[in-house]
């Protein structure tokens, strides 16, 4: 978004110190040290029954197949995330299906899927850690949980899904009509 519309509306921008991003703070909400793994997050939003993946992906019932292909399973998943060349196993680990993996090959749990997202969306990840992007729940002066990126973005088609808006306010003329209230 550019700034000219704001200025044209006669609104003055309050310029604060240039946002020089330091690395994400290693302190928790109350100043306690936090290991990245130590972030409090709610349960990953899996579809009921799909996890653990290794219930099927145990290397026997479902053999490892790294070929890009039409899948006979998980057909509800349609990848719409970045380049066409992307494949499932860029994120999911072929041999350890209950994990994701990073570009480095490091396996990570689904509870830290933000590390995966953060590899390509570094700016959003930093803002998320600071509580600016995404959302923290809990209490403003106490313990907090971070919603995972995937609580809001489907990892396979991450564009934030549109919502049906709730009811608009009643127009004043209609309040008068229905209630006969003098204005």
């Amino acid at each position: 978004m550019n700034t000219s519309p704001i200025q044209s509306a006669g609104l003055t921008l309050l310029l604060l110190a240039a946002p020089a991003f330091a690395s994400p703070p290693e302190k928790g909400p109350k100043g306690e040290p936090v290991a990245q793994e130590g972030l409090q997050v709610p349960k990953p939003p899996f579809t009921e029954g799909v996890f653990p993946c290794t219930a099927c992906h145990d290397g026997k019932q479902v053999k490892v197949n790294t070929q890009r292909r039409e899948l006979a399973m998980h057909s509800e998943i349609e990848l719409k995330h970045g380049p066409e060349s992307r494949w499932c196993l860029d994120c999911h680990d072929a041999n350890s299906r209950d994990n994701l993996h990073l570009a480095s090959g490091e396996k990570v749990d689904f509870t830290v899927s933000y590390k995966l997202c953060g590899q390509c969306h570094g700016d959003k990840f930093r803002d998320w850690r600071l509580g600016i992007h995404g959302k923290r729940t809990g209490s403003w002066n106490g313990p907090k949980q971070y919603l995972l990126c995937v609580h809001c973005h489907n990892p396979h088609a991450p564009h934030f899904a549109p919502l049906k808006p709730m009811a608009p306010p009643t127009r004043p003329e209609n309040i008068k009509l229905t209630k006969g209230v003098a204005r």
């Binding site: 609104l11 921008l13 604060l16 302190k27 803002d127 600016i132």
Partner: peptide
Amino acid sequence: GNLLDAKSEIRQVLEHKRVFKLKED
């Protein structure tokens, strides 16, 4: 959050983002 607490979400926003006020004039 608490404007007096440097770790609060509101302070993080003020420090890292450009903010404006409605009808600041």
